[in-house]
Amino acid sequence: MTTRSVTELQDLAWELRETVLQMLHSARSGHPGGSLSSAEIMSVLYFHVLNIKPEDPKWPERDRFVMSKGHGCPTLYAALAKRGFFPTEELFKLRQNGSILPGHPDMNKTPGIDMSTGSLGQGISAAVGMALGLKYQGLSSRVYALLGCGELQEGQVWEAAMAAAHYKLDNLIAIIDYNRLQIDGTNAEVMEVEPLADKWRAFGWHVQEIDGHNVQAILDSIEQAQKVQGQPAVIIARTVKGKGVSFMENQAGWHGKAPSDEELKQALAELRQRRMQQ
């Protein structure tokens, strides 16, 4: 674990956003909305919380991270490169033939990826399996999983939630990137997921609700979640899809399209301004 100040972690989140938009621009496709909404969460996980070794990505005692909302992987790739799992140049080969960075995470292609994901609802099941497997092997490592809010519509998520509570997996922490938007519109329009905290509580989880762009709140909630015993913990992080770029914020249309040259220029200018003001 590295120790970083709140200011540093916030600054790293802005840097991840800049990197992500440059990556998506060079890939000419990808998912900006949900990549930008999770920047603070990923910054806190990869630059403060996770006990991982970039020089030994398969270290058996490491903490695991599962990107259950697999399409949000650009932020994860940017964080892994920043942590030194692979050279930064690789980031700009995102989604290209022969690249180590496919459109959705592949544990056999990318150093530092613990689980192949992309088909929604499946990552959380694998995370529950990992938490079970680590416990059975007597390892004290923790498993962190990031889920999207649209993803919660998958029935498998609730099968996994039931199993995690049944097996009392207090080494599992799920974080929900709750930006309330999905491809066809808002959750409310497509398929409402509320009352969300009540659902997780009813499934036997320890529940916290936070502002997912507040670094201190993320740090505190994870610390709290780590102390929970005998049950899994979920952090419902309220976020803004496309956070940091005025024309992407809260726009479902920016779920899955890359910025043009002009849009990238404007977005980077806005992000840099926000970063300076921090």
């Binding site: 544990m107 099941s125 529950v128 990992m130 092997q137 498998q156 099968e159 039931m162 199993a163």
Partner: peptide
């Protein structure tokens, strides 16, 4: 036991295999 939940059954197995089991 995964209970009567075959989708999660496969996911649990995948996660356990990812830890070397």
């Amino acid at each position: 036991n995964a209970g009567i939940a075959e989708q999660n059954l496969m996911g649990l197995a995948a996660g356990m295999a990812a830890t070397g089991l």
